[in-house]
Design a protein around this nucleic acid. Structure first.
Lengths: 279, 279
DNA sequence: TTCATAAAACTCAACCTGAGTCCATCTCGT
DNA sequence: ACGAGATGGACTCAGGTTGAGTTTTATGAA
């Protein structure tokens, strides 16, 4: 680094600039009882005390004792998830985290100008969360219960709001963030191997199909789904074993598979398109 | 808002938290002389003085005179683009801006902890830029000249660096951001009507095909491309006129089209896949 | 033992895609 | 003024993929 740069940095004081806060929020999705659920916490402190919000918090730069602390954004997302759920490291390791987007409209946080970097997480069935320090409670909430726009109500570009009468109100612009996360998840099922993040280490084709049906909210044709999944190279690979028992109401034992090494699906698993294409 | 919230807000001092800077950077892409180009500025102040960077800067919260200033993130991206290019509002209106992602690794900026929200912009041929106040110069630079990894060198998840010997070195992690923007642009051509953002108000099918060929870096089959484009509802609509002259080296006049109202393409225009699918 | 259920293999028509041919039109060089 | 060469655009055709259905078989529950 040239001398002039060193001089510049020595004279540079970050406090000369107006403060902007940076938070990290997580849209953590899982499937419980055939319903797509999101992890929410009930806020126990202002702002929006008593409302529900996505797990998240300010980006940390120092520990409780003041020692400097350098975490990447995705590490912060993992930390917030762990703090608000009591998830252990092993279970967290099975959660797939990816950046969703950043939200920074003026006024989205009454305290100050806050930019929130949102992450999207997917995981298999997880235990009930333990509320963290700032939370009154924490729970996996079926997204269908949150009154988000869907179908014809979901107009691209329009600000997302919960339907009137929805009991669990979301703080900040978290309804918008959650909506965007759901859209992303639905889209990613088409062209990525994301679905395997929702199931366990080994799984049946039917379980994988249930993931697609739950997230997309539509029935899929069993035989065609199977043919398609097995024809995509690297999506799933056979374990060479079957389930211990047949289905709950009878039927043969099914083959077990594990996730393959592909992250992108070629060719993709496209949803059949309705008339929504007129955007 | 309940009283407790009001009390809390009155007592809240943002300066109690360590400062984090928020910048907005723009990956502005256009096509010039059949080459995909990105807008870069040559830095005229530390840090990284003399290197090239994406146009961008700190999110503003007050004007030069100190008046409060509330801009959204995308407005900040448009402002930075305008400041560093001398683009007028009318031309800027034809530029499509969308959020690319946020970059916030510790140490990515030597001054302080900085989170950069990157935007991706696409526009038709634009004039040579006028360097802004902090820039020594500004230029549309062919992305092929920047030594970014491509093909087998582009390993997903690996940190992006410019090839040794590349003349224009990029500051910060802007090589990574630019790389991600290019990947996004290439992917979005497949399933969105993005390509029309690179051409003028009216265009020929051949011009649209040239966009795909330039961004993807591969030749497409003319008749099949035409059939496909015209079969996707809402992608393009006929103007009912032809070009004034035939092609530069002969040929009949071609039909003119304008962008339709679709933003998502169904069915998508998929690239033929090589063996790179083994990710 | 019977029956409903589900996994998995199979069939078939409709559609989409990649590759190629052909022709009319136009520009440019001679 | 003319012809070579290039281009836009229509057309053809084989192969693959998809959606929708049927059939077979293994299994658990009644």
């Amino acid at each position: 680094m040239p001398d002039s740069e060193a001089e510049f940095l020595a004279a540079y004081d970050p406090r000369d600039y107006p403060a902007v806060g940076v938070t990290v929020d997580v849209v953590a999705l899982t499937i419980r009882d055939d319903r797509l659920c999101v992890l929410l916490v009930e806020r126990d402190a202002p702002p929006y005390e008593g409302l529900w919000s996505l797990p998240g918090g300010f980006l940390k730069q120092q520990g409780e004792d003041g020692t400097p602390f350098a975490e990447t954004l995705v590490e912060a997302a993992g930390r917030e998830l762990a703090e608000e759920t009591g998830l252990d490291a092993e279970r967290l390791g099975r959660v797939h985290l990816e950046q969703l987007g950043s939200y920074g409209d003026p006024g989205r946080d009454p305290r100050m100008r806050v930019i929130s970097v949102a992450y999207l997480g997917f995981g298999p069935q997880m235990p009930d969360p333990e509320p963290g320090s700032d939370a009154r409670s924490a729970a996996w909430v079926p997204v269908a219960d949150l009154g988000l726009p869907e179908g014809l109500d979901a107009i691209p570009g329009r600000a997302v709001q919960q339907r009137p009468g929805t009991s669990r109100r979301l703080a900040f612009d978290h309804a918008q963030i959650l909506f965007d996360g759901l859209e992303r998840a639905r889209a990613k099922l088409e062209y990525s191997a994301l679905a395997t993040a929702f199931v366990g280490e080994t799984f049946t084709i039917a379980e994988l199909r249930a993931v697609y049906e739950t997230v997309w909210g539509e029935q899929l044709h069993g035989p065609n789904f199977r043919r398609k999944i097995l024809s995509v190279p690297g999506f799933v690979e056979s374990v060479g074993a079957t389930t211990e028992r047949g289905g709950a109401r009878g039927g043969p034992r099914s083959q077990l598979y594990r996730a393959g090494d592909a992250t992108l699906l070629h060719p993709a698993l496209l949803r059949t398109v309705t008339e929504e294409q007129i955007r």
